[in-house]
């Protein structure tokens, strides 16, 4: 009797036992946890602790240093801009990829994933080659007094390249899941295209696009490889926070670097939590 109720009550544990066996279970699980602690938790904790090691006033001084503050503002500004552009263009791209039928659609859809596989440094090189000052596009724009590479537009382009898949891939499945009949119902009831979009698509797409847009902002504020190549890294102009951090490391000021890193880390975590919160909320509503 007791044995039986035990077996029923501990179904989870039985399955778990079945997967990581016996006494090895704890050891293997402990190994995974230890790996993650050593690789992630301890170094990042060290970073944050050392950022404050010289006292909070010094920390504040370091992050409000003119160059540092400007780099942080630029990084956050471009990050938010890129997030917004991603929401807009990413949704449009997903729309076209799921709802249009044209030759080469499959190839184009696969290409959208390419930034996941291309090294970001290579992305930067590609952007610099196309839009650099000596390129065809670059000289054309220079004639109108517009700089792309070694200027802010270059940063935005590089960030857009690197974060391209975020919103597209988040929105696509949501779009595919929307019932065509719901759209048709709205049309038959007399709704125009905007009304249909507002009623049927917008509420469904918004959480996915928004959370992915936030994730792309989070990704953008940490971006280094592509920025280093295209930005020119001019203080007060095109010096982003990660590049500033790198510069401080190079010039032997790791604690100043740690201070600015900590600020970046806080923003990144806030964005991560925000995006996760939106996804959870939507998930919970779907489950009901």
């Amino acid at each position: 009797m007791t044995a039986r109720s035990n077996a029923e009550g501990s179904e989870h544990v039985r399955t778990a036992d079945a997967l990581l066996p016996g006494p090895g279970q704890r050891a293997l699980r402990g190994l995974a946890l230890a790996y993650v602690l050593v690789l992630v938790a301890i170094p990042l904790a060290t970073l944050v602790v050392l950022a404050f090691a010289d006292g909070p006033p010094v920390f504040v001084e370091r992050v409000t240093d003119e160059v540092a503050r400007d780099a942080l503002v630029l990084t956050l500004g471009t990050g938010v801009l890129v997030g917004a552009l991603n929401v807009l263009f990413g949704t449009a791209t997903a729309w076209v990829l799921t709802r249009y039928r044209f030759p080469g659609r499959g190839a184009l859809s696969a290409l959208v994933d390419l930034p996941l596989a291309v090294p970001t440094l290579v992305a930067g090189v590609m952007i610099a080659v196309l839009y650099g000052p000596s390129s065809l596009v670059g000289t054309t724009f220079a004639a109108w007094d517009v700089e792309i590479v070694f200027a802010k537009p270059g940063i935005v382009l590089a960030l857009l390249f690197v974060t391209l898949p975020f919103v597209v891939r988040a929105v696509e499945p949501v779009l595919a899941e929307i019932d065509v009949a719901e759209e048709e119902a709205a049309i038959v009831l007399g709704a125009g295209p905007w009304r249909v979009f507002r009623t049927v698509f917008f509420p469904a797409l918004l959480p996915a696009a928004l959370s992915a847009g936030i994730r792309s902002t989070g990704r953008a504020i940490g971006e280094f490889g592509s920025i280093v190549v295209v930005a020119g890294n001019i203080p007060f102009e095109t010096l982003t926070a990660p590049v500033y951090v790198f510069g401080e490391i190079e010039s032997g000021a790791p604690r100043a670097a740690a201070a600015v890193s900590t600020v970046l880390l806080v923003f990144a975590l806030a964005l991560y939590v925000g995006a996760t919160w939106i996804e959870r909320k939507v998930g919970a509503r779907h489950a009901s």
Partner: peptide, 13 residues
């Protein structure tokens, strides 16, 4: 969520 430069820095420290 973490910039690679930051990771480098963390291990450096």
């Amino acid at each position: 969520a973490v910039s690679p430069v930051m990771i480098g820095l963390a291990f450096l420290l």
